[in-house]
């Protein structure tokens, strides 16, 4: 009973800064300038289908790349001795000590037509290639920025897998491949699902990455929402409607994800 009192500050915080704003988003999405009920804005969202498709696609690709890159790294990390684990984890976290905007800004100079990468390539007689302002650059930006969010949950689940389980598997004649598939993989499912959630959700709603690395012509949903508020036409109702559709979409995808995880209800 006593513990409930201590959770009061956060409960109040949640009510004022999460629940109320969400209700306001819903209210704005379903009303027009005069405050009357309308479905117009929600149905208008349909015309931006291609932007939704692109956002979902790019963030799925980024999530997949993160997973493929992070899985072996996390496994390797979890099998190292304790001292080295600390150092390696610190290196994983290192980029996050610097502001997200600055890091993305740095990529702009690296990938530019006269940027560092093209400069290096020209030294060996290659290029110049067009790196920046492509959807590939946007995916790269997402992967770079969100990779730690994939590694950390995977690592924290894998580090709990007892080494004796792996030994037992090989004692009983498991090849290293089937040890991975039938022992490590099933045990790391909770890490995979929460890693996917933590990468996919910020990736699908990002807007600054596509602006900086996509050259403004790889619009994502985040850009679209930003344009409704700070663009030429101030249209908070449409902006709220797009946000609402996005939230419902993410919610559904997450519910679907959770079905693959039999024991734990991840992040919901």
């Amino acid at each position: 009973m006593k513990l409930k009192v201590f959770s009061a500050p956060y409960l109040i915080w949640m009510a004022v800064f999460i629940v109320v704003p969400l209700l306001m988003v819903v209210y704005f999405a379903f009303t027009d300038d005069a405050g009357h009920f309308t479905m117009q804005h929600i149905s208008d969202v349909g015309q931006y289908a291609n932007i939704f498709v692109r956002s979902v696609w790019l963030s799925l690709v980024a999530t997949a790349v993160c997973l493929v890159m992070a899985y072996p790294v996390s496994f390797m990390l979890s099998r190292m001795d304790k001292h080295r684990q600390g150092t390696m984890l610190m290196i994983v976290m290192l980029p996050m000590w610097m502001n997200f905007l600055l890091r993305t800004y740095a990529w702009m100079t690296i990938l530019g037509n006269n940027g560092i990468l093209n400069h290096l390539l020209s030294l060996v007689g290659l290029g110049p290639y067009k790196f920046i302002n492509t959807s590939g650059a946007v995916v790269l930006g997402m992967v770079y920025n969100y990779l730690p969010f994939m590694i950390l949950p995977l690592y924290s689940v894998m580090v709990k897998i007892d080494h004796s389980l792996l030994e037992a598997a090989s004692d009983l004649g498991c090849s290293s491949r089937s040890t991975l598939l039938r022992v490590v993989l099933p045990l790391s499912v909770p890490g995979i699902t929460s890693g996917i959630t933590m990468v996919f959700v910020p990736a699908i709603s990002t807007f600054i990455i596509s602006r900086m690395l996509g050259g403004g012509s790889n619009l994502l949903i985040g850009d679209l929402i930003e344009m409704q508020f700070l663009g030429n036409a101030y249209n908070p109702h449409l902006g709220a409607a797009i946000s609402l559709v996005l939230m419902v979409m993410i919610l559904l995808i997450m519910t679907l994800m959770n079905q693959f995880d039999p024991d734990e209800q991840v992040l919901m």
């Binding site: 969202v45 349909g46 015309q47 931006y48 289908a49 291609n50 932007i51 939704f52 498709v53 692109r54 403004g216 012509s217 619009l219 679209l224 344009m227 559709v245 979409m249």
Partner: peptide
């Protein structure tokens, strides 16, 4: 918005 996202072929608006 249409101009900037026009690159890809027209996607059906019912897809969402």
């Amino acid at each position: 918005t249409e101009m900037k996202s026009a690159e890809d072929e027209k996607t059906n608006k019912w897809i969402t």
